[in-house]
Every structure is written in C-alpha cells, then in structure tokens.
C-alpha cells in the first residue's frame, strides 16, 4: 500500500496583491503566532506577500531575523511549513487548498474566500487613511460572515484565530440570479 501523506491543514494569508500590508506580514511571521497554529493542528502557512519589492524584502527579513531560518532551506518552524509567494495567478486555487484564510480587508479577497465558503479572518490595516476597510469588515462581521481583527497585532489575532475554530459562520447569500438582467432589460 502506498504510504499515505500526512493530511495538510493550511492557513493562507493574503496581504493584497498590489498594495502590500506590512503589518499583516509581521503579525503572521511571528514565533508565537506560528506556535498557536501548530497547537490548533495547522501544519502549513502559505503567505502571498505582494508584488512590491519592499514586500519581498520584508518577507525575507522576517524569515531570517524574526524566525531565525535560512532562506535556501525548506522553511519549518514548530512543525509548520512556511511558504511565501509574491502573487498567485490562481488565488482561488490557493484558497480552495486551505482550511482558513487570513486576509487584508479588500473586497476582492473577502469575496474570493466567502464565495468559496472558507473560514475567513480579515485584519484591518489601521495605517490606511480614509479607511473604508474598517467599515466593510464591520458590515461583514455584523452579518456573521467572517471575523475581523481591528489591527495587525499578534495577541489580538491569536485570540481571533482561537475563536474562529469554534465559531459557526453564516454563508454569504449569492446575488439574486436575474436582478441585473431585469434592470438591463428596463433600460
């Protein structure tokens, strides 16, 4: 019999493909956070850090200086495999392969996860001025569709990570089939 692969249980983190969110990278690439992942049974942390050069530099610096790993090795901390990608052309597949998504509060990322019926934590970027992201995160949390974390903070995110394990989230209703079609026909 072929040896069965140990079941992968992945957390996918996306910081936004165009504008990166350094605070989110610092929060998840952290010993204490990764230890909590391990305790909760996750064994892979996949991070989409964004296309900007700064984002790659920050990712590598966190791997080396905060987690004390070597960049040319397989990145393992506490039995959790860490993988970083700048940008995925098929982010939906990344989400499908994951048990949990931790995302910035952009509508695109929120919809990607909720439409694929994945558990989602959004971390609000409190450094952004004129911040609609907090409003969106709040509305979605009010609907029971996701949990939000008001700022990129390790302790706060760990609490929410534990909370979401036992939280029953609501499925985001699909758009009504022919709303737009009926409107187009009226024009």
């Amino acid at each position: 019999m072929p040896q069965s692969q140990p079941q992968s249980k992945t957390v996918f983190v996306t910081t936004g493909a165009t504008v990166t969110f350094p605070g989110l990278l610092r929060t998840v690439l952290n010993q204490q956070f990764i230890k909590t992942l391990k305790d909760l049974g996750y064994n892979k942390l996949k991070v989409q850090y964004g296309k900007e050069k700064d984002a790659l530099d920050l990712f590598q610096s966190l791997i080396v200086h905060t987690l004390g790993l070597q960049l040319n090795e397989v990145l393992h901390t506490d039995g959790v495999l860490i993988e970083g990608i700048p940008f995925s052309n098929d982010v939906q597949q990344e989400i499908i392969n994951s048990e949990l998504v931790i995302s910035h509060s952009g509508t695109g990322s929120i919809l990607d996860s909720l439409r694929l019926k994945k558990k989602l934590i959004v971390v609000v970027n409190d450094a952004l001025m004129d911040n609609h992201q907090l409003e969106i995160a709040q509305e979605f949390e009010n609907g029971g569709y996701l949990l939000k974390c008001d700022k990129p903070d390790v302790d706060a995110l760990i609490d929410i990570l534990k909370e979401i394990q036992t939280t029953q989230l609501t499925e985001l209703p699909l758009p009504k089939e022919d709303t737009l079609k009926t409107i187009l026909e009226s024009l």
Binding site: T18, G106, T107, G108, L111, K181, T182, I183, L184, E185, S186, L187
Partner: peptide, 24 residues
C-alpha cells in the same frame, strides 16, 4: 422599472477600472 426589451442583440459597453473594480 418596466421590462422594455430583451437583451437579445443589444450593444453593451462595459468599463473595466483598475484594481478591485475589474474583479467586481
């Protein structure tokens, strides 16, 4: 809001903005 005509044969123009607008 009355239905006037079907979509059949109509010409639509769609603006694709940058970033999240296109996805939406």
């Amino acid at each position: 809001i009355e239905r006037k005509r079907s979509l059949k044969g109509q010409n639509l123009m769609v603006l694709l903005g940058s970033g999240g607008h296109t996805g939406e």
